[in-house]
Design a protein around this nucleic acid. Structure first.
Lengths: 251, 251
DNA sequence: CCAAAAGTGTTACCTATACACCCATGA
DNA sequence: TCATGGGTGTATAGGTAACACTTTTGG
């Protein structure tokens, strides 16, 4: 890089004057059958950086926050532009605001994480600059994006352990064994099919459709449907419509 | 306000051009014995706004993000300036980024929440513009700060239910009954003293000091100490589960 | 001695787990 | 028919809740 010291000095000056930039990053998870075992594995899309810093490194989809959209909307738009998919689940992850995350101007990134269904069409939407990777075998990413992904993975496993989130990685109808495979893929451990089945059938959010999945090698399993509220916990969609608000008294 | 329409028009123009401002807000909880029952109750400090918008309304402590400090540091500084206290617990809560939180320029607030010990000195540090209020009886606050407080309360109750967080609201030494009172105050329900005791004594992070609390009316209880890790790691607090918190499923 | 909180013991119940076993289907 | 995953039954362990009971102090 030419003029290295000069531009560094310029950066120092900029840092003192410019406010921190605000960006959105999104960790997008989907399941894809492993080529070897056939079991589902977590994948996520990354974009290749086409300019400095970290040129040619892979990074999370994202970008600066546009004026006209809420944080959630910005994340959803990034996701749509990158994968062509509409997420079944989208949640704020964390605001990363360390001083030296990015060389040059200071950047505060608000990270989101999403679950999308593994439509082949979507996964096929790759290009030279957008590619899907296995979440458990990531190379060195740009900025602190490895840490963001790790935190998202931690959160996903947590929700998978305690909450009801697996269905967002599946289509409308699914077998109980498919749900179990999702749990096993994310938590990376085997689960007892008998007990797992009992837990799910005890959950009233899981409803038998009456249909059966045909075409398998063995006894056709029942198809189920998730009837849990996809919208509106009391705090959902918080960012969109709201009272006016702003930071408190400036000291 | 003179020139109202003119400045409104100016604001609209500004919105399109300026990037969103970044601010930090902090919800600070402490326990204080209720005047009537003597049981501990949650209180939090608020600051009076001395300028528009929401002049003379009460608001969360906070301010714009200074260049030289991380998000966590900014929150800690706000807290210190407002209460004079150093928090025993400080964790990121959520980034609020709705479009119309603040009249005028758009503001994205990264909210933190903290637990501090109920030193009288600290609670006495009030002024005309800084005052403590009961967390369960708040008036209408500035901006969307009521919702931020409500979310912080939800998170506190959640952590109190599943995690080990009550000790951060107490001093170095405490009786098991005091811990139980904290749980009862936050969760707002009675707990069985016998079973509660057993759960805590089974926890290796709770350690008997060998001392006894004298001066009570009845049998003097043992004093215990919390030996769990207090230090926040570099990501602030990663043990955040958020269970089914701010989830937003997109239809 | 009495009141009340500290602290102990016991039991019922619920749920997670392990695992034996039957069922239904494709090949 | 056999292999295999779908699906059911059942015994056990560990933890939680309910509550009776004993202990220790101040008044």
């Amino acid at each position: 890089m030419t003029g290295f010291m000069f531009s560094e000095a310029a950066n120092v000056t900029e840092r003192r004057q410019q406010p921190p930039a605000l960006a959105i990053s999104t960790v997008i998870f989907a399941l894809r059958p492993s080529a070897s075992s056939g079991r589902p594995v977590l994948w996520l899309p990354l974009v290749r950086r086409i300019r400095e810093p970290f040129r040619d490194h892979w990074a999370l989809p994202g970008g600066p926050l546009t004026q006209a959209e809420s944080l959630q909307d910005a994340a959803a738009r990034n996701l749509q532009e990158t994968t062509g998919l509409v997420p079944k689940y989208l949640e704020q992850l964390y605001a990363f605001g360390g001083l030296h995350r990015s060389p040059g101007q200071r950047v505060v990134s608000i990270a989101y994480w999403a679950l999308v269904q593994p439509t082949e069409a979507a996964l096929a939407e790759e290009s030279i600059n957008v590619k899907w990777f296995r979440a458990d075998k990531l190379q060195q990413l740009a900025f602190d994006h490895n840490e963001i992904v790790n935190y998202a993975l931690w959160r996903l496993r947590n929700k998978m352990t305690y909450g009801t989130i697996a269905y967002h990685l599946l289509g409308e109808k699914f077998t109980l064994a498919q749900v179990r495979e999702v749990y096993e893929a994310v938590l990376d451990r085997a689960l007892d099919p008998a007990n797992f089945r009992r837990q799910l059938t005890a959950d009233r959010q899981i409803e038998a459709t009456g249909e059966y999945l045909q075409g398998g090698k063995h006894r056709p399993p029942r198809l189920y449907r998730y009837t849990g509220a996809l919208a509106a916990d009391k705090y959902d969609n918080f960012d969109d419509d709201d009272l006016d608000g702003k930071a408190a008294a400036v000291p």
